[in-house]
Nucleic acid binder design. Structure first.
Length: 813
DNA sequence: AGCATTACCATTTTT
DNA sequence: TGGTAATGCT
């Protein structure tokens, strides 16, 4: 654990800017950096001098040699709207980077190219690769996340009501803001069942991202909270007012505020459109509706915009991403050219056979045939450990084996959710294997960093209440209430009132004066920060007595990060929007393997990929079982995970998992995505007592079974074979999700019966539809089989429930 | 009002 | 497990 902590907290300052937003870096003229000898330099110089015969010059790069035909077409179609549907591992980033090169060879100055992505990881990867190919020349390109871009515009053109400065709240800030709204409204005090503030915040955010009203969202996705919908709506309103009052924006606001600004100010729109002659959007399948509209707004109707994405890798629906964006792109831009990248350069054919089979069960819209020329005799493996502890041990020793063959940086273990790697982390430590984990604590989440950030934020935006409260709470005797009072007094401008509110807290008053002076001084960020650190040191020593020397180191690094910045607000926004994160330390950790959530693994690749916990309720997550769309997203998530593997893919599915509630191990059900894989795409091995692995025979009863109404024959031989062997995908009823867990009212039940009764006993299921018994609920009627192993049962007195087959006893006729 | 302790609960993914 | 909210103590 010690090991993990250190890796997480480590920040390598020199690289921290590399992936950080490039919007604000002074637009470095790349020719001055590459030097006059460079061909790029010469061409750019030509451009700068107004010569435009560039298209007649020979290109430095032989694009046709470096790219396949589809990639070539994408990289050299520079005008007009283009949609690139890029399968996993099809050289998407490569294509984008070569297109950048091409644009620059054609004489387009890098500052006129805008490269937007959804995650900062993708942004970092892109700029890294661009710099690899183009040298520092690539760094003049404006690239980053939508959020980062939005901030860069909004700070120059603040939305109405935000003239006095503007800061971005991170999630903890938003949370305490909402909590304070809840207190002000005196809502839900002492009510046990009242939803958690966290829950409410994510519902509010989701409703905004999906652009549906809160009430409807609650009805559809959290029906058990319906009784609290009015209270939550009130909180949402109060939260919006709070943000305006305190000149803060949350992540979601950034996008909407930018859209409003662009729509409300034609001059601004023209300006922004003029700044960028070419726009590229990566990971387009993960954009939400606002982001799609922003893309359209910035591009103009026939703009030069290329969007790149893969509908099969859309895994952010939970926060409003909408696959329809990518599907609708041709409709939005009727002139759009569609290019598909289907050749996979990453994985061996056996790995692709498995990933294609995962996708075969999906409701996919752009059909792709991924193929590879990389043949291999090594099949993916499915390991069935006895339980989750032995899974961790087995995975760790397998990693240890692989370390003889592959460098650590080529090995990764992936999982659905962060906590699932816990056992594994222990085992890896035990075996002395170094690892780094993605998706853990962020650098900026450390309390002392947040403290200093809060002071810096108050310099930029004196009204920033979350920052104000945080600074107040440095000092003993000041909590949320006092902070609020002092804030009100300080903002009122009445010195006497301020003295009355904070007179007892000399330290705090001194700090406020200190901040005022510092604000007036208007020093460079690094100098300013240095003074803040000096002032903060006594607080640090008092509040973190146990480990302040360690924290001080982190703060020293902060100074180095700040050095290159010209504006303090840019430093702050970069840190809160695109913080350096553990990735910044990558270069050091060559000896470390990677642990990562699947989400964080997107876009990355390793020679060896292990995926753990492939059992029902974990992968797919139990939260996804109730809803068709979420279930499909889990499938895509597994697809993303498996397509990270270049050479070897190892799936783990423990036979039993520890149940905390029960305090014992219980049987685990193999993930349906694995279960439905056809025979022959993987080798199964089972763990015996003592940890030995035994090859398992082909699973019983998994013969190819023709499926009625098989829809696509055009998918080609191999795919068709997969489909034939695949059992019917689990279909859940379209009945509202909560119906599955909550008791249904009488009329709901009959409505359900009328519409959703399945057409007959499932051939898959061992249970016939009839009566059964349950230990707790007694006798009930089986209404529906929910493959692979659940049943919807109507119990007298308890209503409809969804129960695992293992807990049901079939009643004899 | 602030702070410490206790009890409970639920458990995802990211900007 | 750990984080959060209610409760109790200063």
């Amino acid at each position: 654990m010690q090991n993990l902590h250190r890796v997480r907290a480590k920040v390598k300052p020199a690289r921290s800017l590399e992936g950080a937003s490039l919007f604000h870096r002074s637009p470095l003229c790349y020719y001055s950096q590459t030097g006059p000898e460079s061909a790029f330099g010469r061409k750019a110089a030509n451009y700068a001098q107004g010569r435009s015969q560039i298209q007649f010059m020979a290109f430095i790069i032989n694009y046709q040699e470096k790219l396949n035909p589809a990639q070539y077409e994408a990289a050299t179609t520079l005008e007009g709207p283009v949609l690139v549907v890029a399968g996993a591992g099809s050289g998407k980033t490569r294509t984008i980077v070569y297109r950048l090169a091409r644009l620059m060879e054609e004489g387009v100055p890098p500052q006129q190219i805008l490269l937007l992505t959804f995650t900062r990881k993708a942004a970092q990867e892109m700029t890294r690769r661009a710099e690899q190919l183009l040298g520092l020349g690539g760094s003049g390109v404006s690239g980053g996340t939508f959020h980062g871009f939005a901030y860069s515009v909004l700070r120059r053109f603040p939305p109405p009501g935000y003239r006095s400065g503007l800061t971005v709240m991170d999630t903890p800030d938003s949370l305490s803001a909402l909590r304070s709204c809840k207190e002000d409204l005196k809502i839900g005090k002492g009510e046990r069942a009242f939803p958690k503030t966290q829950t409410i915040l994510s519902l509010i955010s989701k409703s905004r991202n999906k652009e549906v009203d809160l009430d409807g969202l609650i009805r559809r996705e959290a029906a058990h909270l319906m009784p609290y919908a009015p209270d939550m709506a009130a909180m949402a309103d109060a939260y919006a007012a709070y943000k305006l009052k305190h000149s803060v924006l949350d992540y979601d606001d950034l996008l909407f505020a930018l859209e409003n600004q662009l729509r409300g100010n034609p001059e601004l729109l023209a300006l922004e459109r003029g700044r960028f002659s070419h726009i590229m959007v990566d990971e387009y399948q993960d954009t939400n509706p606002v982001q799609a509209r922003l893309t359209q707004l910035l591009a103009g109707e026939n703009g030069n915009v290329m969007v790149v994405g893969d509908d099969a890798q859309s895994i952010y629906a939970f926060r409003g991403a909408d696959v329809r964006n990518i599907l609708n792109f041709p409709r939005l831009f009727p002139e759009a050219k569609l290019i598909k990248l289907e050749e996979n350069y990453r994985s061996t054919q056996p790995v692709l056979d498995l990933t294609n089979a995962i996708l075969a069960g999906a409701r996919e819209s752009f059909h792709k045939h991924l193929h590879s020329s990389r043949q291999s005799a090594v099949l993916p493996r499915l390991i069935r450990p006895l339980h989750d502890l032995s899974q961790a041990a087995l995975a760790a020793s397998m990693v240890s084996e692989f370390l003889h063959t592959y460098p650590a940086r080529e090995i990764a273990v992936l999982f659905r959710a962060g906590y699932q790697s816990f056992n594994l982390e222990v085992q890896l430590n035990k075996q002395g294997i170094h690892f780094k984990k993605y998706g853990g604590l962020r650098y900026t989440d450390a309390a002392h960093i947040k403290d200093v950030m809060a002071m810096a934020r108050l310099i930029v935006n004196p009204l920033d209440f979350p920052a104000f409260a945080r600074v107040g709470e440095f000092y003993p005797g000041i909590g949320p209430k006092t902070a609020q009072r002092v804030y009100a007094a300080a903002v009122s401008g009445d010195a006497a009132q301020l003295d009355k509110a904070a007179g007892r807290h000399k330290d705090f008053l001194a700090t406020l004066r200190f901040l005022d002076e510092l604000r007036a001084a208007g020093e460079k960020p690094a100098a300013c920060l240095s003074r803040i650190l000096d002032h903060y040191r006594p607080v640090l020593e008092a509040n973190y007595a146990d480990d302040y020397p360690y924290r001080q180191q982190g703060l020293d690094e902060f100074l180095i990060i700040a050095e290159p910045y010209a504006d303090l607000d840019l430093l702050i926004s970069d840190l809160s929007l695109e913080d350096p994160g553990p990735e910044a330390g990558k270069g050091d950790d060559d000896g470390a393997i990677t642990l990562s959530t699947v989400h964080s693994a997107k876009g990355l690749e390793w020679s060896v990929v292990l995926i753990i916990d492939l059992v029902q309720d974990r992968f797919p997550s139990r939260h996804a079982l109730l809803n068709d769309d979420e279930y499909e997203e889990e499938r895509r998530l597994l697809y993303v995970a498996c397509t990270r593997a270049k050479d070897e893919l190892i799936l783990f599915a423990p036979v039993s998992v520890y149940n905390r509630g029960l305090g014992a191990h219980e049987a685990a059900v193999l993930s349906p995505f694995v279960h439905e894989l056809p025979e022959g795409v993987y080798i199964e091995e089972r763990e015996g007592y003592g940890g030995a692995l035994y090859a398992a025979p082909a699973r019983f009863g998994r013969m190819a079974r023709p499926e009625a109404g098989n829809r696509e024959d055009e998918t080609g031989g191999q795919d068709a074979a997969f489909k034939a062997a695949r059992p019917a995908p689990p279909r859940l009823s379209s009945f509202p999700p909560w119906a599955a867990v909550e008791d249904l009212p009488e009329q709901g039940e009959s409505a359900f019966k009328a519409e959703n009764v399945i057409s007959g006993p499932s051939k898959d299921g061992p249970l016939r539809l009839g009566y059964c018994r349950h230990r707790l609920f007694g006798r009930g009627k089986i209404v529906q089989h929910i493959p692979p192993d659940k049943y919807r049962v109507n119990f007298t007195g308890f209503g409809l429930k969804v129960i695992m087959a293992d807990y049901l006893v079939l009643e004899e006729d």
